[in-house]
């Protein structure tokens, strides 16, 4: 099975805001990239962490675990982590795992 490459884009739309745009297959083989990046994302000025999952084609349990890890890291920092975009597939996945009740999801798809 050929997989869509996993990409992470980082932008700073505001001085205290970091936006992560993830795309591709976010799974056991690729989730380590984001996990490794998590500590450096928590810069001193960070107040808001936006995560865009619109381009993510697949998430497995390792990908979910990495998002949970990121959520906890933001909570401890403290910064507010919110999801700003996702597909119905991911919204369903968050619903099955009841993470929709934990995560800050966009109102349109949640």
């Amino acid at each position: 099975m050929e997989t869509a490459p996993f990409l992470i884009e980082i932008e700073n739309p505001e001085p205290d805001t970091t936006r992560l745009t993830l795309s591709g297959d976010f799974d056991y083989t690729t989730s380590a990239d984001l996990a490794a990046m998590t500590p450096t994302l928590m810069s001193s000025g960070l107040r808001v962490l936006e995560v865009d999952l619109t381009g993510v084609t697949f998430i497995d349990s390792s990908g979910l675990a990495t998002l949970i890890h990121l959520y906890h890291a933001a909570e401890e920092h403290p910064a507010e982590m919110r999801f700003v975009g996702m597909t119905p597939y991911i919204a369903h996945l968050f619903e099955v795992t009841a993470l929709d009740q934990v995560f800050n999801l966009p109102t349109s798809t949640a």
């Binding site: 675990a65 949970i68 619903e95 099955v96 795992t97 009841a98 993470l99 934990v102």
Partner: peptide, 15 residues
Amino acid sequence: ARGTLLGAIKSGAIS
């Protein structure tokens, strides 16, 4: 039936 992933949320609260 629905519920939270186990061992994931540090606060220990699951619904």
